[in-house]
């Protein structure tokens, strides 16, 4: 098998023609997200170029601290992304989310790299890409779950007030909404498991095949990473919401749902 052909920059640039086609269609259909698409594609280009340069440098100068530092930076960025999208959460809830994301992301990554793949966690070639997939998916899942959870709380003020007056424990009142959010967060992962291999070949599998890995080896990695992603989403969301629920009521069992308005 051949490893992936080098992509000359000029031919690589051809792919941006597709982007122009999308932009043209969006303009025609009067979709007002053209600015966002341009920003997003430019950011993606710049971020990936930087990541490519950085990874090349790290692979040339391997050092355990560099690998760990890279992973830590990924975790911190993921936490920042999630929290910046959910400013309505109270301070304690934000800490719970940060700890859950970091804890479950690192735990699953450690398990995957050390036990499943069987290499040292400081091995940049494995830890960094796998860490990106695991932590990135945890971030997306958590963000989705928190969106659903916050929307549910906001849309159900009547239900919350009624059950509170009914004398139900605040934890019991909020728990079904937390469970619904966990379900919502897991659905995309589960759905992608259902479709995988029939219609589409997932990114990591495609990448490995392009790089010349035997498909039989590549699918093992793919199956493993999909289960790891499912696990990390489940763990991060469950911990965030399960422990986060406790921050939603005070010692008088009154619900405190939003940040107090700033004066």
């Amino acid at each position: 098998m051949n490893s992936a052909l080098d992509l000359p920059l000029l031919r690589f640039a051809l792919v941006y023609i597709l982007l122009l086609a999308v932009l043209w269609l969006m303009k025609k259909a009067r979709i007002h997200k053209t600015a966002l698409l341009i920003t997003a594609s430019m950011r993606m280009t710049v971020q990936l170029i930087l990541a490519g340069l950085l990874l090349t440098w790290i692979f040339k100068h391997p050092h355990p601290l560099l690998t760990l530092g890279y992973v830590c930076a990924m975790v911190l960025f993921a936490i920042h992304r999630v929290l910046s999208q959910h400013r309505g959460l109270n301070k304690r809830f934000q800490w719970v989310v940060a700890a859950s994301l970091a804890g479950s992301g690192l735990a699953v990554l450690l398990f995957f790299v050390c036990l499943v793949v069987g290499v040292n966690i400081t091995e940049a070639q494995y830890t960094i890409p796998l860490g990106g997939m695991i932590i990135g998916n945890a971030m997306t899942g958590l963000s989705l779950a928190l969106n659903t959870f916050e929307q549910n709380l906001a849309a159900n003020t009547n239900r919350l007030a009624s059950l509170l007056n009914w004398g139900a424990h605040p934890q019991d009142i909020v728990r079904p909404m937390a469970n619904a959010a966990l379900e919502t967060a897991l659905l995309p992962t589960i759905n992608s498991m259902l479709g995988t291999g029939i219609v589409w070949l997932p990114g990591m599998l495609t990448g490995q095949i392009l790089a010349g890995t035997l498909p039989t080896t590549a699918i093992l990695y793919q199956i493993a990473i999909m289960i790891a992603i499912c696990a990390v989403v489940c763990l991060a969301v469950f911990c965030s919401l399960y422990f986060g629920c406790h921050t939603l009521y005070d010692k008088h069992y009154r619900l405190i749902l939003a940040n107090p308005p700033k004066e």
């Binding site: 007030a161 009624s162 059950l163 007056n165 004398g167 010692k251 009154r254």
Partner: peptide
């Protein structure tokens, strides 16, 4: 105890759920 009080002094709110 807040929950005990709430279960004894039962409030039927205005908003039906």
């Amino acid at each position: 105890e807040p929950l005990a009080l709430r279960r004894e002094v039962l409030l039927v709110g205005q908003q039906v759920f």
